[in-house]
Design a protein around this nucleic acid. Sequence first.
DNA 1: CTTAAAACATAAAACGTTTTACTAATTCAA
DNA 2: TTGAATTAGTAAAACGTTTTATGTTTTAAG
Lengths: 333, 333
Amino acid sequence: MKTLSIKDIAVKAGVSITTVSFIINGKAKEKSISEAVIKKVEEIIKESGYKPNQIARSLRTGNSNIIGLIIEDISNSFFSRIARLIEDKAYKKGYKIIYSSTENDVEKAKDLINMFKSRKVDGYIISPTKGIEEDINALLADNKPVILFDRNLSDVETHYVGADHFKASYKSIESFIKDGKRKIALVTTDIDVEQIVERFDGYKQALIDHQITYSDELVLKIHFNQDETESIEEMKNLFLSKEIDAVLFATNYLAISGLKALKQLNKQIGDDFSVIAYDDHEVFELHTPSISAVQQPLEEIAETVIQLILNQLSSKAKAENQKVIIPAKLIER
Amino acid sequence: MKTLSIKDIAVKAGVSITTVSFIINGKAKEKSISEAVIKKVEEIIKESGYKPNQIARSLRTGNSNIIGLIIEDISNSFFSRIARLIEDKAYKKGYKIIYSSTENDVEKAKDLINMFKSRKVDGYIISPTKGIEEDINALLADNKPVILFDRNLSDVETHYVGADHFKASYKSIESFIKDGKRKIALVTTDIDVEQIVERFDGYKQALIDHQITYSDELVLKIHFNQDETESIEEMKNLFLSKEIDAVLFATNYLAISGLKALKQLNKQIGDDFSVIAYDDHEVFELHTPSISAVQQPLEEIAETVIQLILNQLSSKAKAENQKVIIPAKLIER
DNA sequence: CTTAAAACATAAAACGTTTTACTAATTCAA
DNA sequence: TTGAATTAGTAAAACGTTTTATGTTTTAAG
């Protein structure tokens, strides 16, 4: 059964293709098509189940009603939750989302941008890797809306939505200090992206502001994409070698590995050893004892992102670039 | 800066559009284009950064090199992990994946299928909801490859890949019984999909085979999409009202809610109260005490799914429908 | 009646490819 | 020297829409 085209509808209705097209696109009134014809055509469309070929439509109009979402890793719960929220909200406005993971691989990221570009997506939502500044700038030059989220790219002039990583990190450390901790470690990753750097800076600044000397030895940078068992070993070393009394994990997956390490060491979390994780996760709530975490306002981030991109899409005019920084919450457990 | 078209390349190279197209598509040899021309055109393409417009390509050829993946909920870790694996494997074969969540909403599922259809995706990977049998059959009639996974649809004749839910559930209950448990509860959902039914059947059969009378009162069916706090209350009731000594949770998110309920009740998991969760999750490994779980072989499922769909895509011939049932593993912790 | 304006409708170009069918030039065997 | 076969390349149709420019018919005013 061949799929129907607009032509079939036109023939069946005894009108021209143009007329059918106008009706489909709600321009019937404007183009003064008679009520009778409108009714007839609509009926035929309904009963035949005709659906316009979006590919042809895209080819002609140059847009697609699709927004491309590029994230680091869909299997990370922070991203999958955000993705779900964004998808939801976009869907309600008639936009579809297609998403794909970069795995923090610059080449793959570029590939994805190209793929989205050649599929003519209308706009881009990206949690960027370093190294794709040029590609993003090319999109902007091409007048495509781009919203960055989670991490900013300083060489790119566009909208950005993210949590206040510096402050969240700073506050976490401060809360340790209030509890009398002094040997505070940071476990972070070695990927050079802004939000990770900010978390590091927050850590450092909080120490300095409270007259605690910063020491490189208390900071463990885990290789991105490194095997988890290896990461766990490195953390065990850190936890054993120094008399650490608190540790901030800069991402949720690092915190999870850290908890595994502690479990293997049989080291209890409690009064003399505190932990805070960055990005909340079900694990932390259920853990015994439960684990404090920095909670990013996912809902709010998603909402803002969607808002910004829809604005861009509806108004041709290029709005002022906005950098929206949303406070994160420290959930003390 | 207008984006380049094949015509621009043709003009720049002083050859026809046809020639450029042949070269792009690797048909240069076959169509006897001279080495010199090939080299020249390739050079121009490279230095100009020309990328073919996939929309136009799709319109002409009727396919897209895109596989549509339809799942229940991308924020569920089972699905997001599977999605990541499938994406990965497809990517290596030159296929892109676009995915979207149905949220178990029949209308949304149909919508998605339509969207994918009008975007001319080459094949479909679907974890289906009941109620979309017709739509899937329409795809099949249209000669599109469809692979179902996680849950089968008995009214649809196509490939299926999933874990052996019946047996996994059966074994879980058996392991309880071996440990001397007799009052064994099941917490499941009320959505009527095959894999949930199988888990229920496995539970029931195991009881019967071991001369334990089945009782409706020990089975709690949680409303899908119901607020978590309410689910937790219902579970608390169950746990309090009967002298239950073991419970199997039919999905990982139910298990997580269940753990929260237990925590609120201050009920310890241990010798006199055992728990098994269906679908593993980081929470279970880290929980104190750690929680046994049925682990579906994600990697294997993803691999099989991709294998099947790629086979379908490359060979025009319709292969015999395969139902691949992969054993699941009970991780005893 | 005439005719300008309004109402209704359409033909055809364009979007950027792939592919079929064709032409022109060269080679080669007899 | 012919003409068949091979080599090298191209024109134009087709994919299914949207949209511009244009053409008819009807209405209403004078």
